[in-house]
């Protein structure tokens, strides 16, 4: 239990939660407003983080530009997904979107020369045994921020601490922007399309355009999450981008109540604790399991939470019951 007393553990949980929070915000605008069942969201995260890493390592491109291009590629991925499959029935789209992210993962997995393949991030041996790093610029930014923050917060300030602050500031800004966007008449139309295609179309609204835009916005936000994911882990592997991750996002979204953004940070922290905290489940009965078995249990618990949640409180912790009843 001692791990739970360490501030470092909580900072780690907070950083993870923040990244997952941003990731889920992308799903929120797609499903919570537009009713779009995107189960391939993790693909956007994979696209942006790999694009950034490849551009920095293999082409020596400036970090900021590489990150921006990474997000743009995620948006492009969203556009590709939207153009090919968004006109399909809702359940077909859900399945096609899973396929999209799996295809992204397969390509990463099998393009050893470009991505390092299964070995993990661009594990192209340069000199000696060092992995080429794409986080140099970022590390220096973190260090500078650390010098500024240490006098304020004291010794607790380490790399993770600064990361947590940056991630949560970004999440805060994005939440603010998205909640503003969701008060526009654009969002009103999108909300209408969640229930029905014919009514908005009969009133002169191009339903496809609204949905497409929602997918792009969601993909951009997912892409931003991917950049942070890449910077946080500093070593990418195709296994970071399993469809499982998309479902983590869905779990957070449902916990938070899909239609409102305000519950999202708390739901993200709850998930972060469940996810990160369960590796510290060293007490009985978990003490009988070894580390890899505990990893199985962790995903199993998330599966059980998902089932119980959908069975008993599908509107989430903060959602309105009425919105679900009227569905």
């Amino acid at each position: 239990m001692t791990a739970l007393m360490q501030p470092g553990f909580w900072v780690f949980i907070l950083t993870m939660s923040g990244i997952y929070g941003i990731f889920t915000l992308g799903l929120q605008i797609q499903y919570g407003v537009g009713g779009i069942l995107n189960f391939g969201h993790v693909g956007m995260m994979a696209l942006s983080s790999y694009t950034m890493a490849i551009l920095i390592i293999s082409h020596g491109i400036n970090f900021w530009i590489a990150a921006a291009i990474g997000v743009a590629v995620a948006a492009l991925g969203g556009a590709l997904l939207g153009l090919t499959t968004l006109r399909l029935r809702r359940d077909y789209f859900a399945i096609a979107s899973i396929a999209f992210s799996e295809i992204v993962r397969y390509v990463i997995y099998n393009s050893d020369g470009l991505t390092g393949g299964v070995q993990g991030s661009l594990a192209i041996p340069v000199t000696g045994e060092n992995y080429p790093s794409y986080t140099d610029t970022w590390d220096s930014i973190i260090n500078r921020a650390r010098d500024i923050l240490t006098p304020i917060f004291g010794e607790i300030v380490d790399r993770d601490f600064v990361m947590a602050i940056i991630v949560w500031t970004t999440l805060g800004i994005l939440l603010l922007i998205v909640s503003r966007v969701e008060r526009t008449s654009w969002a009103r139309v999108l909300r209408a399309t969640r229930e029905d295609d014919e009514v908005p179309a009969a009133l002169g609204k191009n339903v496809f355009r609204f949905r497409f835009q929602a997918v792009i916005i969601g993909s951009v936000i997912g892409g931003i999450a991917g950049i942070f994911w890449g910077l946080q882990s500093s070593l990418l592997s195709p296994d970071d981008f399993l469809t499982l991750v998309t479902f983590y996002g869905w779990m957070i979204l449902i916990l938070a109540g899909a239609t409102k953004v305000k519950g999202l940070p708390i739901a993200a922290i709850f998930f972060g604790f469940l996810y990160g905290g369960s590796r510290f489940f060293t007490f009985w009965p978990f003490s009988m399991l070894d580390a890899s078995e505990r990893a199985y249990v962790r995903i199993m618990i998330i599966g059980i939470v998902l089932i119980i949640l959908m069975m008993s409180r599908p509107q989430g912790i903060f959602g309105k019951r009425q919105e679900m009843v009227l569905e």
Binding site: Y31, F247, M251, I307
Partner: peptide, 14 residues
């Protein structure tokens, strides 16, 4: 649709 999808996914995880 979503509830069914997610419960089925939860079952798959377990």
């Amino acid at each position: 649709l979503l509830a069914l999808f997610l419960v089925a996914t939860g079952v798959a995880f377990v």
